[in-house]
């Protein structure tokens, strides 16, 4: 199977599970809304009845941020200290939802039911959670590798009087970081698929095996690259339109919100295609060992007698 075939098959799998995409999107939005509460809890009460609101709530208004911190040091501090916890929760919720999503994407039949989805979430949670912890280590390694490019550049040109080589080394380092993160991320897709397909609980084995699989079959990174290009394209489509929606009056604000959510939906879809691609390619790259000879009970009813071995 070629990469493009795999992707288009995966897209078909995703399209066949629209209700799951919507469910996933909705659940994820709810978690995001929860995470947004501390921020909104500071800004909205301060500004809901203030004539300064339009001016102070522009995107990333530095004055308002410092003003809010100055006005409510306790609240601001609490909100900010809540964020590591929130990031952990959002990450965990992502792991949880991935269980159901990957399970249904691996199934060949396009059957979908919320029950199947949620049971998948629960079933695979701990395996995927362990996988996430291992992946953190891999990302740390990726980061160190990319950082070493900068270190080498610093050794070579750091003493010089020109910054250009250092800036370009920074670009190379960033590109390498993105590539390595893509590699780890792709491997984690395969690891999840493997855990589901093999009905295995061995997360570490799946993690290492998938890294090995990606390294052995660099072409799967081609799929990652194509999907990354899709993401960039979606973003290039989204951003200029978003920039030009004059969201001052309510209807246009809602249009903007809708447009934002469409973009999020597209990204969710891409995520599913990414898992789907792994589900398509995994059997080919990693043929399942022949199942042990199964004992087929000989049934006594006459109708099936012909089939008895």
């Amino acid at each position: 199977m070629t990469i493009t075939q795999a992707i288009s098959n995966a897209a078909r799998r995703a399209n066949g599970r629209k209700r799951m995409i919507v469910l996933y999107w909705f659940t994820q939005m709810m978690v995001a809304a929860l995470a947004a509460l501390p921020l909104l809890g500071i800004a909205v009460p301060m500004l809901a009845h203030s004539g300064w609101a339009p001016e102070l709530l522009k995107q990333f208004d530095v004055t308002f941020i410092t003003e809010a911190m100055q006005a409510r040091p306790g609240v601001g501090g609490a909100a900010f200290s809540a964020y590591p916890l929130i990031i952990f929760l959002t990450m965990t919720s992502g792991v949880f939802l991935a269980g159901g999503a990957v399970k249904l994407m691996v199934q060949d039949a396009t059957v979908y039911s919320p029950r199947e989805f949620w049971s998948g979430c629960g079933e695979y949670f701990w395996r995927f959670f362990r996988l996430m912890l291992y992946s953190l280590l891999l990302y740390a390694i990726a980061n160190a590798l990319a950082g070493s490019v900068k270190k080498v550049a610093d050794k070579m040109w750091g003493d010089g009087l020109e910054s250009a080589p250092m800036v370009m080394a920074g670009w190379v380092s960033n590109a390498l970081l993105i590539l390595l993160c893509g590699l780890v991320s792709t491997a984690m897709d395969y690891a999840k698929v493997r855990l589901v397909r093999d009905e295995s609980r061995k997360s570490l084995r799946a993690c290492l095996g998938s890294i090995w699989l990606v390294l052995r079959n660099p072409r799967v990174m081609g799929a990652w690259l194509i999907l990354a290009v899709f993401w960039v394209l979606f973003t290039m489509l989204y951003q200029p339109v978003a920039n030009n929606i004059p969201a001052v009056k309510m209807p246009l604000i809602l249009v903007l919100a809708l447009w934002q959510q469409l973009y999020i939906l597209a990204r969710v879809w891409l995520r599913f295609v990414s898992w789907g691609t792994a589900a398509e390619l995994d059997p080919e790259l990693r043929p399942a060992p022949l199942p042990p000879e199964e004992f087929v009970p000989v049934l006594s009813t006459g109708a099936t007698e012909d089939y008895a071995i």
């Binding site: 995107q59 992502g94 990302y139 999020i264 995520r271």
Partner: peptide, 18 residues
């Protein structure tokens, strides 16, 4: 809407890396 949108994007990044 903006805050929600940025957080959703962040979550999607976290989901695709983890």
């Amino acid at each position: 809407a903006n805050v929600l949108f940025w957080l959703q994007n962040l979550m999607l990044i976290l989901t695709s890396v983890a």
